[in-house]
Write a protein that binds this DNA or RNA. Structure first.
Lengths: 188, 188, 188, 188
DNA sequence: GATGAATGAGGTTTCATTCAT
DNA sequence: AATGAATGAAACCTCATTCAT
């Protein structure tokens, strides 16, 4: 990816994280990225395209981080814990996207279907994981999106509560939370 | 509440639900509400005030719906199911706010602390419920926000998946989901 | 004059003095005057009318103050000093208009001729004074507006410099200034 | 100075002179200057900045014109006449600002102190002139602002009376007026 | 007479996008 | 490829004025 394009995406992210959608303007992006305004339009068709590409980039980043060090040969619980922590520690990474996922959910519903397809590919590891668990009779026989919503997604909501609402979460509690989520998806 | 003020809030909600934050403009709100632009400013200091008041109104609505028909004298499981379903069926109500909660989380973080205080009051029933459960030794000894995030919040995420991503959820599955969330919060 | 009308004029003046023309709005006038917006329009045709009537009121006030204690039977120098001081101490009076004359000069040039006629009547004492002086061969044979501009008007400019630019003017200097202005208009 | 910036300043001046502050709007300035509205904001932070910069530009222009052809080696009376006429003929110059100074005095009192400092520098010639005259024992020992107010400022007031109120001032009278002002500042 | 809610034109300013260089 | 000045539509908001009560 071109150097300038990367700069522009990074700048967009920084501004979104700092000032929100309201504070985003092509001019500010250009300033932050240290390029001319016009340059943005060499790499992105328009504002929406920029936002969508950023969205995708972040989604890709998250997907990759999520499956990092997840070893299929290990027990499911192990894999689950790994994924949960990957999500949890994600926004605390050096090069992490500064955005919460929420900030993108409220985007104009462009390219909706196209995006869902991409998501399926990106998160295939998770699908594989849930399918495996159900096949082994360990997980409840619920649709994958449901398992995701009750097993892993809480990590995201809790991250927000932790980082901006000051919810105290130490390592011991973290283990308990993960176990609680595990309880949600397994057959008891 | 003044007639016009209600019209304006309703119009704002409609537009947000239809076109998102990007599609919201004071002109459009005025048109939708069938009032003059200037009229909005008799009832709201500015755009942010309008959004914040809408936010609060919805929050209040949700809080009230959430605790509807929740009978403290009934078993905790019963109460839990009731609340979960209240959340689940909420956006399908006639007069329900058309917005997902997500659409508000990405608002400019104005009046942050003020809002959290309000939230505590509004959702005191839930707090009472969680505290009761922990006292009885039925729930895991986790902070209330955590119990919320793993027990009830998934309802919201799933609603979105259900309504806009076409996730199929029939009554049987719904019971299973609620049970799964119950598993997350109870001591096994 | 009706009670409300007086209130409104006073309020207008206060606001003009405090926030300038830019800060003036019918709404603010109404608030300051403790009347309803609509009430203003019972007494004044429109904004311009309000401003013009205020202008006239102030002009009248100034004209009356100017000739206060000016005794035609006294020597011209005496009368001159009296008028000069009247102008000088005018904005320091209890009930004085809070506006410098300047603030009105830049009004839309409405009712121009009508106003000049009124001025002639209001300031007839000054005209009488200048004519007398010229007839007696004491004053330079210059048109009255010129005598005004060099003899008395400097009082106004100096007041501004004194009150807002911090120019120090004690009683001794004041006498010197008045004498200097007197030098300007008399035949030497 | 950029071409467009000059156009904009000139246009602002024209409109102010034509329609007064009330008639000034950024749209009109843009039209008159034949630029897009947005362009104004490349060169001026906002409306106030535009007005202030115009103010300064005019002040600078006036200051330069005022000292034009004022020869320090000539007698003080000569210099005085020169300055007085410079002021008098100033608004009749081809490229002169179309505004009377009055129209600016009623501006929002922004950058007040900053402005007074600039004034001191711009009008240093006048200060030098007054100091010289006092040192030589020709002028009355009054503060410079006073000498200005009684000696030179009347030129400005009279210009207005001449140009808009139809006061007749021929060359002979002009000489008399200047002499009268001279009388005001000299020790008799 | 008096009120003040309502109006909507018009004000200032921002910003996505284009285009000559 | 890159620039950034310029554009002008559209955003938010104000305010003189009207009118039903």
């Amino acid at each position: 990816m071109s150097n300038k394009k990367a700069q522009i995406l990074k700048a967009t992210e920084t501004i979104l994280a700092t000032s929100g959608f309201h504070g985003l303007s092509m001019q500010k992006v250009a300033n932050e990225a240290k390029v001319a305004t016009g340059t943005i339009y060499r790499y992105f068709k328009d504002r929406d395209d920029l936002l969508n590409q950023l969205h995708e980039q972040i989604l890709t980043y998250v997907a990759h981080r999520l499956e990092e060090n997840v070893d299929e040969s290990q027990p499911l619980k192990e894999q689950f814990t790994r994924m949960w922590k990957n999500l949890w520690y994600l926004p605390r990474q050096e090069d992490a996207p500064l955005l919460t996922r929420n900030q993108f959910e409220s985007l104009p519903i462009s390219h909706h279907d196209q995006l869902r397809q991409k998501k399926d590919v990106l998160f295939s590891t998770v699908h594989r994981f849930f399918n495996e668990g159900k096949q082994q009779g360990v997980f409840k026989p619920l649709p994958n999106p449901v398992l995701w919503a009750i097993g892993l997604e809480p990590s995201i909501g809790l991250t927000t509560k932790h980082l901006s609402d000051g919810l105290d979460v130490n390592d011991a509690i973290l283990e308990d939370i993960i176990n609680a989520c595990w309880d949600a998806i397994i057959l008891s």
